[in-house]
Design a protein around this nucleic acid. Sequence first.
DNA 1: TCCGTTACGGTTGAT
DNA 2: CCATCAACCGTAACG
Length: 381
Amino acid sequence: MGLRLCFQVRTRRWASEQAAEQTYGEVNQLGGVFVNGRPLPNAIRLRIVELAQLGIRPCDISRQLRVSHGCVSKILARYHETGSILPGAIGGSKPRVTTPDVVKHIRDYKHGDPGIFAWEIRDRLLADGVCDKYNVPSVSSISRILRNKIGSLSQPAAAGLLYEGGVGGGGGGGAAGGKAPAPQPALPYNHIYQYPYPSAVAASGAKLGAHPGAPVSAAHVSLPRSWPSAHSVSNILGIRTFLDQSAALAGTEGSPYAAKMEEWPSANRSAFPAASQGVNALDKSASETDIKYPQAPSGLSAVSTFLPPCAYPTSSQPGVYGGPAGSYLSPAHHWQTQGSPLAHHHPPGMALHGAELATPLAFKHPTREGSREGSSESGFT
DNA sequence: TCCGTTACGGTTGAT
DNA sequence: CCATCAACCGTAACG
């Protein structure tokens, strides 16, 4: 606690360059930089998983990447559990049950029967399948809606799209509900963010799901989760795929990558069924984080920043992590044909194709999307 | 020494 | 627009 070295460089001082932005952070005991309260950059998270896949022990990963072992442990555990390296959804409140669609129904009921009681509306919402027992608004909520919204008449239903996932169970929604006893099965409260190699999958043409309506969601960094143990290298093939992909990404070196990095998160969020575990939520926060972190303008950005030369003998492990993106990546983009498996990793309806990055946004988060990411996810508590 | 767990101080975003 | 609240974060420390 008190020992934090925190050197809050809240300014841009030395950030003279483009990387400029708010490069502030603190330094942990290992010399690594972190931003309190914010997730580590995806690049680092990815590296952690990659190194683990390669058989490097968590304690070594911790030292090499200069990330606390507790964090490494947490990220790997999460990865094992969910298949995603992405941080959870930060902030926000419980999924709102009073979606525009619900409000609309309430309004209809009210219009149909001005004397209807809130509890009756509640029953009808359930009876009509507008809501299920998990997301039906409370009587008090309904009363409030009647008072505040219906009274003054309002809400264009357009916004409905935002929350639609839950109730309507659009595309993949349905499946979601089925899976679990999650409290809020239907409500997409989680923000999902897609994983780094968006374009990868897309580019590959492996656009699996042509599912028009299905919420594509992203490809979490889902490696084939078959590794027997965190240290197993057995599944190297699967890893290969993974690495190649990331490599491809990182490899873009000079340009797109860095930019992408910061965009991934925001660009990739999409609502998805609670079934997906609601874990991979990356939200704007994530992207912002990346921005805040002292990132290099290009390619390896985060990672390299986090890994001072001294910590990472760039030349020593070419194959694993040579430091700069360049060396790290492998020229071959075989993922092209392997993209699908990755994408398929998760429950149905969850694939996000990089190429469609823009699209999903368009159809899924029309409203809040403007400057921030938007979407919500299914948070199930 | 390793690693899972958790208190803590922090950020975020919906309400 | 502000406050509240509940979610998540990573670090540090404990066992």
